[in-house]
Design a protein around this nucleic acid. Structure first.
Lengths: 204, 204
DNA sequence: GTCGCTATTATTCAAGTGTATAATAATTCT
DNA sequence: AGAATTATTATACACTTGAATAATAGCGAC
């Protein structure tokens, strides 16, 4: 028997490799095509190993979804600087790579399509969405205050809903049909739109 | 042998039943759960019949996707009346049932997630998206002209991209977490946002 | 070094997949 | 009413799926 050679990886590392391989497969072959065997090939291991690190394939997929949400939101939530810079960065980050690319939107859509099916994924989604929107709402509150037009929570909430919708919608448009837009066009449209929505200039 | 009784349906009717059953299964069980057998159960027939009406399951799914796009766009594209009414209706239709519901967004997401995988679905998507956005662009052109502020194609294009993004984004938000919004809140936010984007009142 | 632990591989299994084929019964035509 | 047509069912097949189990080899402790 010629067994293939291998090396024993630290637990955290191998788990992350498997999760990354899972996401690769989902984005390239769809949820249907992301089989345990295909994922193992992508990760450079054999199929049985999946069950050594995760209770089930479904659990691994759920963790992979958490990773997607984290990668989509962490950059935007960690913007720094004065409110104007943060707002500008928030918009730009969400509409340029690596957040805005076809792999991201494929993964996002694959999981969204399961929200009705799998309550676990539904909960993960809701948490991520609310955290993201609340971060935007706080950012807008700071921005409006800094511009000398402080607004209450209700007004900020409405702005956050609208701008979140706008940015998400443009994000999807751009990811799915990036070739229909010129370089930087989406960011430019988004900036102008947010200025119009708030009735305030973003550029200093 | 006790064979189950059945009735022979006209071709068009049965095809539509199968497509509808396919969409039901995709929205309830995901693309993975939409198996030929499950679809047949939903349609009240047996699995073999699928291949009598379609060359393959994949082809049936592609036709089902066409049906989804049609149902999502036909109402909005057929708005009538003066430009102001049409714009108002366009927004309202896209953000209220039946266009805005969790089944629709599940189906939409399921197919979007396959755009990278299946070139056939990618083409169907692109056609639908462009037709939708162009309809909106024409509508905006009419609206701006009627309001005494005619705009060229490039300006209308930018507005169409932004408003399409806004409406799509709010549509997704509302479909996925309708309980987070009050009745009519999304439509109200969308109306106010579009007014701000265009710098024109929509209400007469 | 070699021993022990366990991460990893290899193999097997039952259930489910899309599809092909043959049997049959609902409907139409004469 | 009876024959012809074909939509529909029933069954079988080859293959894939996630998971369970047993064998093995990498690697740290001593």
């Amino acid at each position: 028997m010629n067994r293939r050679s291998f090396h024993r990886a630290p637990e955290g590392e191998r788990r992350q490799e498997l999760i990354e391989a899972t996401l690769d497969c989902i984005s390239e072959f769809g949820l249907k095509g992301a089989t345990v065997r295909q994922i193992a090939v992508r990760a450079g291991v054999t199929a049985g190993l999946v069950r050594h690190y995760f209770d089930s394939k479904d659990q691994m997929v759920a963790e992979a979804y958490r990773a997607v949400i984290a990668s989509l939101t962490e950059k935007a939530k960690n913007v720094e600087g004065d409110p104007t810079t943060r707002l500008k960065d928030f918009i730009a980050i969400n509409l340029t790579e690596p957040v805005a690319d076809s792999r991201s939107v494929s993964l996002w859509a694959a999981f969204i399509s399961q929200v009705r099916v799998d309550p676990v994924l539904a909960e993960i989604h809701r948490e991520g969405y609310l955290a993201f929107r609340n971060a935007l709402q706080d950012l807008l509150s700071d921005f409006l205050a800094a511009k000398g037009r402080p607004a209450g929570p209700e007004e900020c909430r409405r702005y956050a809903i609208a701008i979140n919708g706008l940015v998400d919608g443009l994000w999807v448009e751009g990811c799915l049909a990036g070739d229909l837009f010129r370089d930087g066009e989406l960011v430019s449209i988004a900036m102008a739109s947010v200025e119009a929505l708030l009735g305030l200039p973003i550029e200093q």
